[in-house]
Amino acid sequence: MAQHTISVLVEQTFDALPRIAGLFSGRGYQIDSISVGEAEEPGMARMTIVTHGDEKIIEQINKQLNKIVDVVKVTDLTEEPFVERELALVKVSATQSTRNEIMQIVNIFRAKIIDISPKTLTVECTGGHAKVQAIISMLRPFGIREIARTGRVALKREFRGET
């Protein structure tokens, strides 16, 4: 079953987010990732939902989202080239002996150390879903204490020539 990234432009009302979440839970659709934040226009939010299901379910998700009054626009990005990013903060155990090794991994992934303590490092990593998964699995052997991830955000790619 294919994964789909759906971008939803929605009015920022108190009821918009629970209505969308309730649509997924009430009808048994899957949410693999969901993220929401202010969009370009004041009062509007853009929500990026990653879901999976067969063609029929994805079609229903698109149509049902469109029926929600606060939803202004639904775009299934999967149908066209799009860029996607996710941000993860990873708090990993670090001793004097492992700190350097961790920093090398961080450099390889062009991630950043944003907090340091005698026993931990907190790493900020941005990238596609696969990259974030990869750095997390590289850091796992050192002992991951906590992870916070944003979920994926995505926009349609405009300049087709570069790919």
Partner: peptide
Amino acid sequence: TIGITRPITKHGFL
């Protein structure tokens, strides 16, 4: 009320 009626209404306003 809005929460309880959410899945059985077209829309709810507070």
